[in-house]
Simulated assay, not measured.
Amino acid sequence: MAIHHVTGAYQLEILIAAQDFGEVSSRVIGHLEGIAGVAGIHVGIATDILSYHFDGGSK
């Protein structure tokens, strides 16, 4: 997770890595909404899908 203070329309930009979109919704957004002083959340999603294939060595 990385959090950056920015100028402009929004005050913070948060970059996270998650297993799936459900994790983003339930864990991250739900947690941020519960923080005192957070007036609103605007979500923008960019994806980079990584796939790992492991060769177990069996033939």
Rank of each mutant, 00 (worst) to 15 (best):
Q19E: 15
L15F: 12
H42W: 06
A36I: 02
V43E: 13
H5G: 10
I45C: 06
A18F: 01
A39C: 07
G30C: 03
I29M: 09
D55Y: 06
D20P: 01
G8C: 04
L15I: 10
E13Y: 04
G57M: 02
M1I: 11
G40C: 07
S26W: 06
T47H: 03
I29F: 07
G34V: 00
V38D: 08
T47W: 00
S26Q: 12
H42G: 00
G30R: 00
L50F: 14
A18W: 03
G22N: 12
I49V: 15
I45E: 12
S25N: 13
A36P: 12
G44I: 13
D55N: 15
A18M: 08
L32N: 06
A9G: 07
S58E: 07
S58I: 01
L15W: 04
D20F: 00
I41K: 05
S58H: 08
Y52R: 11
E23Y: 03
H4A: 13
G30F: 02
D48K: 04
Q19N: 13
L12T: 11
S51R: 13
D55I: 08
L12Y: 14
V38P: 06
I49G: 05
A46R: 01
E23Q: 09
H31D: 14
F21N: 12
M1A: 12
I35P: 07
V28C: 06
I3R: 05
V24M: 06
L32C: 08
D48C: 05
S58P: 02
L32M: 08
S58R: 09
F21C: 02
D55K: 12
E33W: 02
G44N: 12
G8F: 05
H4S: 11
G22S: 09
E33M: 07
S58T: 05
V24Q: 03
E23K: 00
I35N: 10
I29D: 05
G30P: 02
H4T: 09
K59P: 06
G40A: 15
I3G: 08
L12K: 11
H42L: 08
Q19V: 11
T7P: 05
A17K: 09
A9T: 13
G30E: 02
A18C: 14
S26R: 10
I35C: 08
T7K: 13
A36D: 15
A18V: 14
E13G: 05
D55G: 12
I45P: 01
A2L: 14
F21K: 04
I41E: 03
G22A: 06
G34R: 03
I35E: 10
D55L: 14
I3W: 00
Q19L: 08
V43H: 02
A39T: 08
I29Q: 07
G44Q: 13
A39N: 14
E33N: 09
G40E: 14
I49H: 05
I29R: 01
V28K: 00
A17I: 13
R27C: 03
A2K: 09
G30H: 01
G37W: 00
H5A: 11
I29T: 09
I29P: 00
F54V: 15
S51A: 11
Q19I: 04
K59V: 08
H4Q: 11
